[in-house]
Structure formats: structure tokens, C-alpha cells
């Protein structure tokens, strides 16, 4: 199988590392060669962060380039738009509708763009936008946004439910398992 590409984007500190760990676990269990690439360090301090997940028969490069992503999973609305040039023409975006102002917006030097969901849809990209923060809070913690997104992504993926559940079991700390499974289910059924 030709290499497929999933990008996970968001704001440093939002918990994208757990999402990539979970996806890596899932894809490995499905028999694929997998590479997952993260950025640590300075950009984690509230900057724009991106994680690349690649899978297929033989994966070479650890990164995803412009025009290559089959899926963009975004923890924050503007970040989905920032990385949209990495999406394939027929690619799928799954995004949280939460908005987090970056420093230039906070300082009044720039404005948070309006109507991003509609604008992204107008490019021809498939966009699935949901309020993950509310669903995460419903599950019991604002930190469960990552599992809500994973639940939503499971719609588009040819992987059995048991494989998802096994990947969640393997990556989420036991203490928060129930909460995270609830978040996954809320995302899936949203």
C-alpha cells in the first residue's frame, strides 16, 4: 500500500503527543510500517505544533510535506487553516472549533480570521468541524479533547472498533481510561 499520511496540528500543550502515540499503536496493530514524527522543545511553549503520522508497506521519510496529507486532525481552528496546504486535494480535515488567540492577536497586531470553516470548505477540502472542548468537558475533563478527535477520526478509518479500544488501553493511563473512552465515544457519535 502506498504511504498514507495523517497530520495532527494544534497549539503547544494541547495534548497532541498522546493522540499520535495512540494512532501509532493502532496502525502498528493493523500490520503497517509506521513512522511518527514530533517536535519537542521550544515550539511546545504555546506555539503552533505539528505531528506527522505515516503508514503503509514501507515508510521512508518521517515527515509529511505539502499536498501529501490524507487527513489533518486539528486541535484548534486556525491551526487547521494554517496547515491546509499540506492537505491532498481530496483530503479530509477533522477540526475542533475551539479558538485560541496567538500573541499577535492578543496584542492587537492581527485579527483572528472569521468564518474559517466555510472558507476551508470553499477550497474543496472536506471539513468536519466539531466543538470538541464541550464534548471533552461532558466526558469529564477539558484535557480529553484529543480522545474526542480520535473518536471522530475513527469514522473515516478502516480499523475495527476493538483495535481502537486496544490502542486506547495501551496508551491512556489507567486512572483516566474511563473518562477517555467516554470522550472517544462522544467524538465518534457527535
Amino acid at each position: 500500500m502506498k504511504t498514507k499520511n495523517i497530520m495532527i496540528v494544534g497549539v503547544g500543550g494541547q495534548g497532541s503527543l498522546l493522540a499520535s502515540k495512540l494512532l501509532g499503536q493502532l496502525l502498528l496493530s493493523q500490520g503497517y510500517d509506521v513512522k511518527v514524527s514530533e517536535v519537542h522543545g521550544m515550539s511546545q511553549r504555546g506555539g503552533s505544533v505539528v505531528t506527522y503520522v505515516r503508514y503503509g508497506d514501507e515508510v521512508n521519510s518521517p515527515v509529511i510535506d505539502k499536498g501529501e496529507a490524507d487527513y489533518i486532525i486539528s486541535f484548534e481552528l486556525m491551526e487547521a487553516a494554517r496547515w491546509i496546504s499540506f492537505l491532498k486535494k481530496d483530503g479530509q480535515i477533522v477540526t475542533n472549533t475551539q479558538q485560541i488567540d496567538p500573541m499577535p492577536v492578543i496584542m492587537g497586531a492581527a485579527e483572528y480570521p472569521d468564518g474559517l470553516v466555510e472558507k476551508m470548505k470553499a477550497t474543496g477540502a472536506k471539513v468536519d468541524a466539531i466543538d470538541c472542548l464541550s464534548l471533552a468537558n461532558e466526558a469529564g475533563s477539558s484535557k480529553a479533547v484529543n480522545l474526542v478527535l480520535m473518536g471522530r477520526l475513527s469514522h473515516y478509518f478502516d480499523a475495527p472498533e476493538e483495535a481502537w479500544q486496544a490502542a486506547i488501553d495501551a496508551t491512556v493511563p489507567a486512572k483516566f481510561l474511563e473518562l477517555n473512552k467516554k470522550a472517544f465515544a462522544l467524538g465518534k457519535n457527535a
Partner: peptide, 19 residues
Amino acid sequence: VPEGVTLDETIPVRPPVMC
């Protein structure tokens, strides 16, 4: 080189900041 989706919109930069 693959062609990606183009969005005609200025997205403000998001530099790392003190927490």
C-alpha cells in the same frame, strides 16, 4: 511535487510564548 490545497487567507503567526 504534489500540489496541496490553497486557502487565500492570512493566518496570524503563532510563536511560542511564556506560559
